[in-house]
């Protein structure tokens, strides 16, 4: 069972106020965690900002995989395109205003989403998965070959964003980038909450469960998926742009199969079909990676693997999904 539907089924009984409460709680949790992160790791804001950018990627992946049932191992294509779009805008076209760079990233991601959607949605199941892998490799190779624009394997360097709103310099400690990232994440999260529970979100859940039934209702499953892919591209593109602005460099790794696969791992870890799950997965995975790789640089991947196996075996709905499921069951039992 996906969490979104459980949330909705419960909320159906509770009505609108309950949902608004959950939204505000969600935003409060994001902002609260952001403050805690800032206080606990003032010297490691770069990691936290990177985490925010990746969270946008995982949220974006959740839209197509969790809500629409499209399995993809190539989602970094959207993230990387956003990163390159904003980086290229800054380096080659002199668009160095961070918000304009962000807009370029969002646009680039949306276009990449459209392109990927057109290709990927022609197939279903395993062939679809293979197409996504092929796509991410094509994107990667294209960026590698177009080195006069992308810097190739050296990466696209020399991105120097202007102060945010003309006031806030992107400082050495990454405070401005961090704040920008958190605000971006909060805004995106709030917008996505609207989308996933709107009629369109309901339509997408229907497509995931039974496209034939959706057709029999007179709606086009493909059109719905395509729209969602473009939205997903915009969100991933925003994450990519944030990464470009905060690190001031774009590398080929942002357009890699590894990043695509890792984002899927994060999503599964947290729980698919829930925005909270996507956030949980990102935070847990990246912290775990950071701590374990520092503690044991040789075997950290083994431990990440073990964690994932444990979660998939014992909490198949993901960390957030399982916890929310338990909470829902307790609530039902009390009624």
């Amino acid at each position: 069972m996906t969490m979104a539907t459980m949330n909705d089924a419960l909320a159906g009984a509770h009505g609108k106020g309950h949902k608004l409460g959950r939204d505000l709680a969600g935003l409060a949790v994001i902002l609260g965690l952001a403050v805690v992160g800032y206080l606990l790791f003032p010297n490691n804001l770069a990691l936290l900002t990177r985490m925010t950018a990746i969270a946008l990627l995982v949220l974006s992946l959740d839209l197509v995989t969790g809500y629409c049932g499209v399995a993809t191992l190539g989602h970094a294509a959207l993230f990387g395109t956003g990163a390159y779009a904003s980086g290229i805008a800054a380096v080659h076209f002199g668009i160095t205003d961070p918000l304009l760079m962000l807009a370029c990233g969002i646009l680039g991601g949306a276009v990449a989403g459209l392109v990927c959607g057109v290709v990927i949605l022609r197939a279903h199941g395993l062939p679809q998965l293979v197409l996504t892998i092929a796509l991410i490799h094509l994107f990667h190779e294209f960026a590698n070959k177009a080195s006069s624009w992308t810097g190739g394997s050296d990466g696209l360097a020399g991105i120097a964003p202007d102060p945010l709103l003309g006031h806030f310099e992107f400082d050495l400690w990454g405070r401005t980038a961090y704040v920008l990232g958190i605000i971006l994440l909060a805004v995106v999260f709030a917008l996505l909450r609207l989308v996933v529970r709107s009629p369109f979100g309901m339509l997408c859940r229907g497509v995931k469960e039974d496209p034939i039934r959706i057709r029999a209702m007179g709606a086009s499953p493909k059109l719905a998926l395509m729209k969602m892919y473009v939205i997903s591209g915009a969100v991933a593109g925003a994450g990519g742009a944030l990464n470009a602005i905060s690190t001031q460099v774009v590398g080929l790794d942002s357009l890699s199969f590894t990043l695509s696969a890792e984002s899927l791992v994060m999503l599964v870890l947290g729980g698919t079909g829930s925005l909270f799950g996507a956030l949980t997965g990102t935070i847990v995975f990246m912290f775990f990676e950071d701590i374990v790789s520092a503690a044991n640089p040789f075997h950290w991947l083994t431990m990440v693997g073990a964690l994932l196996i444990a979660v998939v075996l014992f909490a198949p709905k993901g960390l957030y999904g399982t916890l929310a499921g338990l909470a829902a069951r307790r609530r039902e039992a009390r009624r």
């Binding site: 609108k16 009629p199 369109f200 979100g201 309901m202 209702m217």
Partner: peptide, 18 residues
């Protein structure tokens, strides 16, 4: 969903049917 689809509103990205 069927009602919204019939009225051409199933693509709306805000609001909730409840």
């Amino acid at each position: 969903l069927a009602v919204l689809q019939r009225d051409g509103r199933a693509g709306r990205m805000f609001g909730h049917f409840l």
